[in-house]
Design a protein around this nucleic acid. Structure first.
Length: 564
RNA sequence: UGGGGCGUCGCCAAGCGGUAAGGCAACGGAUUUUGAUUCCGUCAUACGGAGGUUCGAAUCCUCCCGCCCCAGCCA
C-alpha cells in the first residue's frame, strides 16, 4: 500500500506531469523536451515563474531538457534589454538552459520556406484586404466570415507576391499572407489566420534583414518542431490556437510533431500579473522601475529580498491545474517567511526611535554583551552589542496608559531588553506638545543577559540599540501595490493603485553590525520582519527594504495600530 | 440556438466508481529572552444544482446554472 501510494504521488503532482509520465511510459516519447518561450517585450514576473518552474521542473524530474527560446516575432515591441533581463531572471530563479538558447528569429528563413510550401499546396494566399475590411469580413462570434476575393489567387501569383513582400516592395499593412482554412469556423483562429505581415522595422537580432515577420501562430509550433519539443506547455488563452497549431504541423514537412497543453495562469490578490499593465506602471512612473520592490517581477522580488527558493516553493504549493484562480497573497507571504526564518540572521534595528535613559547606569560607561546570530542555530555564532546609559527602543513599545494585556513598557512596568537587562520605566519626559520624547528607566544590574537571579519573569522583551554606537539608516516599508484584491475589477486598474504602497522611514537606528556591506543577504530585524540592504545604499547611509513583516498576532488583535 | 474551457472548505488544490489528501487563512492550547518560531488540536456527512445508472458516484450519463477565453496584420 505504502509503495503504491508513493508511486502514485511521485507519478504526477499535476495533470501535465501525468501526461508526460504517460507518454514516457507508453514509449510515445523517449526524452521529454520542454521550452520556456518568453517574448522579450518586458521583464519576467512571478506568473512566468510558474511556467519556468513547470517547464524546467519537468525536464529535470523526467531526465529531459528545457530550452529557453525567445519568441521574438514582433520587433516593434522587443528589445535587447528584455532579452538580457530574462536570462538573468531565469538564472536567478535557479534554472539553467545549458546550450539550449534559441530565438524564433533563428528560424525565419526556414519559416519563410514553409510559408512558400503552404502556398504551393494551395493552403495559403496573399491578401490585399486592408486591416479594417479584414476585420469586418472575419464575421463575429455568432456569424461566419466572408471569403476574401484574394482567396482565389493563383499559386504563381501568390508566390510572386509573397516574394515581393519579402523583397520590401510593399509598405506596412499593404498585404499579408493568410492560411486558407475556413472562414465559417466556430473557432475564430481558423478563419484564415494571418501568417505573415509586413513590418519595416529593425529587429533586435536580425536587424533589417527582414521586413516581413511571421505571426505567433506561424512561428510557435514550427519552432517547437524544429527544436524537437515534445510537450509545448502554455496558458489557457492559447487553447483555441491548438487546432491551428496542429493544422500547421500537419500541413508542413516539419521534423517532429510536438503537442500543446494548456494550464491556468497564475493570479495573486492585490497585484497584477499582466505585462501590459506592469509596463504601464513603469512607463508612467507609478513605480521606480521594473525592479521596484513592490513589483511582482522577479527583479522586484529579488530586490525586495525574496529568495528564489521561496518563489519556487510558492509555485510548487500553488500547483498546476486548468481552473482559473486567484491565489491569496498571504500564501506567498507565508512561503517567504517560512523560507527566510531558518536562514536569516537576527539583528536589532529601531525603526521609530524613542530615547531611553537608564538613570542608575553610570554615565560614560559602556559594556559589551553577546547576542545570538540565530537563536535556533547556536553554531551560527554571536555578535557583540554595546550597552550604555542611553539607548533607543521602538516608539510603539511604550504606551503611557496601556490597554489590557500590553506586555511592553509603561510607567512602573518592567521589561527585558533583549540580550541585555531588565529595566523598569520610572518617568516619562514630554515636550511642549505633550509628545513623549524620552523615558527615564532604572535597570537591574543583576539581570545581565536578560534574566534576574531571583527568577522573576517579565512578559515583554524589547529590541533596542545603544546611543553609543547605533547607526542612522533609512528603511523602506512596502505594502500591496494595489488597494484591492482584484485590481481593475470595476474599471480602471490605475485608480486601484494603493497610495500607501511605500512608506519611507528616514530616522531609523540600526545596530553597527548592520552598517557594513558584508552582511548576509536578507536578515531578520527581531520582532519586526525580514529586511535586506537596498542597492541605493551609500557608504554613509544604509538603506533597507522590508521584505516581509513577521506575523503579528498582537497587532492583528488590535493591540497596536496595524502597520503593514 | 458560434466555438473552446472550468466549477471540490474563506483562498489554492489532491481525487480518475469503493465511501473527501495537503497547504494558506482562521480558531483553541503548550513551549518561548522575538506577542516570532516550534509544537499539539479544531476546521467539507460534503464535492455548482437537479435527476439517473450502480450494492456503492466528487468520480459514469442527462439536463440546468454560473464563471473564464476567442472577432490583433500582439503574444
Amino acid at each position: 500500500m505504502g509503495e503504491n501510494e508513493t508511486a502514485a504521488t511521485d507519478a504526477g503532482r499535476d495533470f501535465v506531469r501525468d501526461i508526460v509520465q504517460a507518454d514516457l511510459t507508453a514509449g510515445r516519447v523517449q526524452t521529454v523536451v520542454t521550452r520556456f518561450p518568453p517574448e522579450p517585450n518586458g521583464y519576467l514576473h512571478i506568473g512566468h515563474a510558474k511556467s519556468i518552474c513547470l517547464n524546467f521542473g519537468i525536464a529535470q524530474e523526467f531526465g529531459g531538457r528545457c530550452h529557453l527560446r525567445f519568441d521574438d516575432t514582433n520587433p516593434v515591441k522587443e528589445e535587447q534589454e528584455y532579452i538580457d533581463s530574462i536570462q538573468r531572471d531565469v538564472r536567478w530563479l535557479g534554472f539553467d538552459w545549458g546550450q539550449n538558447l534559441y530565438y524564433a528569429s533563428d528560424y525565419f528563413e526556414q519559416l519563410y520556406a514553409w510559408a512558400e510550401h503552404l502556398i504551393r499546396n494551395g493552403k495559403a494566399y496573399v491578401d490585399d484586404t486592408p486591416a479594417e475590411a479584414m476585420r469586418s469580413a472575419r464575421g463575429t462570434l455568432t456569424e461566419p466570415g466572408q471569403n476574401s476575393p484574394d482567396r482565389y489567387r493563383s499559386i504563381e501569383e501568390n508566390l510572386d507576391l509573397f516574394q515581393r513582400m519579402r523583397a520590401g516592395e510593399f509598405p506596412n499593412g499593404a498585404r499579408v499572407l493568410r492560411a486558407k482554412i475556413d472562414m465559417a469556423s466556430g473557432n475564430m483562429n481558423l478563419r484564415d489566420p494571418v501568417l505573415y505581415r509586413i513590418l519595416h522595422v529593425p529587429h533586435p537580432r536580425t536587424g533589417d534583414t527582414w521586413c516581413i515577420y511571421p505571426t505567433y501562430d506561424f512561428a510557435h509550433g514550427q519552432s517547437d518542431a524544429i527544436e524537437g519539443i515534445t510537450h509545448s506547455i502554455c496558458t489557457l488563452e492559447f487553447e483555441d490556437h491548438r487546432p491551428l497549431y496542429e493544422w500547421l504541423i500537419e500541413n508542413l514537412p516539419v521534423p517532429a510533431h510536438p503537442r500543446q497543453y494548456e494550464f491556468a495562469r497564475l493570479n495573486i490578490g492585490y497585484t497584477v500579473l499582466s505585462k501590459r499593465i506592469l509596463t504601464t506602471l513603469v512607463r508612467d512612473g507609478h513605480v521606480t522601475g521594473w525592479d521596484d520592490p513592490r513589483m511582482p517581477t522577479l527583479a522586484g522580488l529579488q530586490r525586495r529580498g525574496v529568495p528564489a527558493a521561496a518563489v519556487r516553493e510558492f509555485v510548487r504549493r500553488v500547483g498546476v491545474a486548468r481552473a482559473n484562480s486567484v491565489v491569496d497573497v498571504a500564501q506567498l507571504e507565508a512561503t517567504i517567511r517560512e523560507t527566510l526564518n531558518p536562514i536569516a540572521e537576527r539583528r536589532m534595528a529601531v525603526l521609530r526611535p524613542l530615547k531611553v535613559v537608564i538613570e542608575n547606569y553610570p554615565a560614560g560607561q559602556t559594556e559589551t554583551l553577546m547576542a545570538a546570530n540565530h537563536p535556533d542555530a547556536p553554531e551560527r555564532g554571536q555578535r557583540p552589542l554595546t550597552f550604555g546609559r542611553e539607548i533607543f527602543v521602538e516608539q510603539e513599545d511604550f504606551i503611557e496608559d496601556p490597554p489590557k494585556k500590553f506586555f511592553r513598557l509603561s510607567p512602573g512596568r518592567e521589561v527585558r531588553l533583549r540580550y541585555a537587562y531588565l529595566v523598569t520605566c520610572r518617568e516619562v519626559v514630554k515636550d511642549a506638545d505633550g509628545t513623549v520624547v524620552e523615558l527615564r528607566c532604572v535597570y537591574d544590574p543583576a539581570s545581565r543577559g536578560g534574566n534576574a537571579p531571583d527568577g522573576r519573569k517579565v512578559q515583554g522583551t524589547l529590541h533596542w540599540v545603544a546611543a553609543a554606537d547605533a547607526v542612522a539608516a533609512e528603511v523602506r516599508l512596502y505594502n500591496h501595490l494595489f488597494a484591492r484584491p482584484d485590481p481593475g475589477a470595476d474599471g480602471n486598474v490605475m485608480t486601484d493603485l494603493n497610495p500607501n504602497s511605500l512608506e519611507v522611514l528616514r530616522d531609523c537606528l540600526i545596530e553597527p553590525s548592520l552598517a557594513g556591506t558584508d552582511l548576509p543577504h536578507t536578515v531578520q530585524f527581531e520582532r519586526q520582519g525580514y529586511f535586506c540592504r537596498d542597492r541605493d545604499s551609500t557608504v554613509g547611509r544604509p538603506i533597507f527594504n522590508r521584505t516581509i513583516g513577521l506575523r503579528d498576532t498582537w497587532a492583528k488583535a488590535g493591540g497596536t495600530p496595524a502597520r503593514r
